[in-house]
Computed example of a mutant assay.
Amino acid sequence: MQNILVILDKPKHEQIALQRALELADKAGAKLQLVSFVYEPVVSIPILSGSILNLSDQIKKERGEWLQALQSEYALPSGSTAEVIWHHDIPSWTIEHLASNPCDLVVKTAQKQFGRGGFGSIDWRLIESVPTPLWLAVSTHWVKRDRIVAALDPAVDNPLHIELNQRVLKLGERMTQLLGADLESVACVPVSGEVTDIDTFRKQAGALLEAIDKVIAESGVTCSQSHFVTGKPAAEVNRAVDRNKARMILVGRGVRKGPRGFLLGNTAERILGRTNTDVLIVP
């Protein structure tokens, strides 16, 4: 991991993304590219653009001064850069930038909307479209142990899902090595209502558990613990993460083909919408 793009919080905020990126860069020897977005919508009104020009220059100047102070406060790795970006759309700029400036990871503080659940619209657009692993960070002072949990797709009869599971596991292993954490896995079999044939269900669940163990073994990754749960995935996966006070959950992005190839499946969306910890999206 050599290059990390960090989308900074606004000046008044805690800079959680920067803190996460600095910790990782210190362990990985990576360089950081810090970007701080500013924009004034009225500049798009032609009749006002002339009078607003000085205002936009002043906004950029003030943010640049703040960015310089930030670099003095945090010791950035050698070779790191920091710049102010004048752009109205963070996701579109990020995707365009990554097309010509590949990096290993994008880190951003999550726009958690606890009142309604889930992430803000900017985060969802990044989740759905960014071709690079995306770390969305939240303030998690309640974390007790450094555990990282890889959420695995139980549809192990599909080669695409198997490959995605293995990418999740391998990135999880890399992150645990860098951060000194333990890697665990969780897979949830969705069960709605009552199971009418308990014996058959146990037999099928046992076969599925063996198949998931095989996926983990073939990835070459070692998990300190594997959680196999049943029920509603959004609730049960997050319950396993919360119960173990994990610092991060890894979720693979959906593998649909065609026009919706970059959209998460409904299950992954529901898991993400209810998570209380950092999330790493694996494309």
Rank of each mutant, 00 (worst) to 15 (best):
R202N: 08
A25M: 07
T222D: 05
R239N: 13
W93T: 12
P77S: 09
V191K: 02
V282K: 11
F201G: 04
R239P: 03
H161S: 06
S121G: 07
E184A: 02
E40R: 11
L280A: 10
K232G: 12
E173P: 05
P190A: 01
K214H: 05
T140C: 07
Y39I: 04
L152C: 10
Q177N: 13
Y74E: 07
I95T: 15
R253M: 03
L209V: 04
T196M: 02
L53N: 13
G118H: 08
P154H: 15
I7Q: 07
V186W: 03
K12H: 13
I47T: 15
R243G: 05
V138G: 09
D89E: 09
V38Y: 11
I122T: 15
L76D: 02
L126A: 04
E23H: 13
G50T: 13
L24Q: 14
G115I: 05
L22Q: 15
G118I: 01
K27D: 05
S129K: 10
M1H: 00
A110P: 05
L8F: 08
L53C: 07
K112S: 06
V279R: 11
G172E: 00
G50P: 00
D199H: 06
N101P: 03
V251N: 10
K170D: 01
S78F: 06
C223Y: 03
I85H: 14
S139Q: 12
I59Y: 14
A240V: 10
T140A: 12
Q166G: 03
V282W: 06
A17T: 00
E236Q: 15
P283F: 06
A30L: 03
S219G: 09
D26W: 04
R274P: 00
C103V: 14
G64F: 05
F228V: 07
L164A: 11
V138T: 11
R260P: 02
I162D: 05
R239S: 10
F114R: 14
Q15C: 08
V84L: 01
L98I: 13
L136C: 04
L160D: 13
G206K: 03
R256C: 06
R247D: 03
A207F: 02
K10S: 12
Q15I: 09
L209N: 08
E65F: 07
V251F: 06
I127D: 04
A17D: 01
L70H: 12
P233C: 12
D213C: 01
I281C: 10
K27G: 04
K112T: 11
K27I: 03
I271N: 00
G265S: 15
R243E: 07
L55E: 10
V156T: 15
F119I: 08
L160C: 04
